[in-house]
Amino acid sequence: MWIDPSRPAERALVTHGHADHARSGHGAVWATPETLAIMALRYGTEMGTPMPYGDGFEANGVKISFHPAGHVLGSAQILLEHAGERVVVTGDYKRRFDPTCAPFEAVACDVLITEATFGLPVFTHPPIEDEIAKLLAARAAHQEGCILIGAYALGKAQRVIAELRRAGYDAPIYIHGAMQKMCDLYAAHDVALGELILATGLAKAEMKGAIVIAPPSALNDRWAQRLPDPITAMASGWMRVRQRARQRNVELPLVISDHADWTELTDTLLELRPSETWITHGRTDALGRWCELHQLKARALDLVGREEEEEG
């Protein structure tokens, strides 16, 4: 039995729906109902055993259960219990408020297998309210054009939309065609996104003063040429570093991440105080060093198939 296998496996436990964790072609899949819905949307009619948060089952004497990770809709940590020993695999997680998914739950454990995507002390995600305010100010100052935001189609896009709504922005939000189905799926799971309009095929004039959301790959693409004088924004934790934003030709960096920042990663370790920590994808070296400085036993796991700097 594998967790988030990068190759088709007979039996797979899947933490969440992002493509580098949820691959297609497995035999049997256990995941939260939301994650299964996302996989079905992406890969067609895949079946699996739904595991709502808190539920579990037993296999080979190991009790397996799923707990909220706060990363995206349906994201879960996986707890493995055997002979009194508890192992938690965080998958990707964050600890900040997110109106589009269930909040992270700290699960006591002996071994913590943690992500470290933003595992460098330079990564502190600012309050999302500040970033949304920055976005709305840029829009107000650029009524003749539009703001084009690059955001991953699963999770980030819906979170940005929901946060805009929470800040009182109730105008229609324009979306790239690649996001529509995922937005519909979120709405079907009671995540209120307000009025969304497909940006494809509209005249430039219709989108003046608008906020448009597209996958990052569309930002510098021909697709964006149909928009009225767009300011290019990007919602990602990587935007914290100026040159990362510049390398992607981003004019309005929005530091919005669905991963734990350095403080969240280290605070979680201090809170759980696992007797051993395994660090998976991301900046394993720096978080390992921090563990050493804080007398926490840690080791890095090199995983294949995890691209550096893919999501953020």
């Binding site: 460098l120 002390p121 330079v122 040159q243 900046r283 070296d285 720096a286 060093r289 921090w290 400085l293």
Partner: peptide
């Protein structure tokens, strides 16, 4: 800062 954490960070940020 811890010199190693600083060096790793500096190496990543480039400035």
């Amino acid at each position: 800062f811890d010199p190693m954490l600083f060096r790793m960070s500096r190496d990543y940020v480039g400035d």
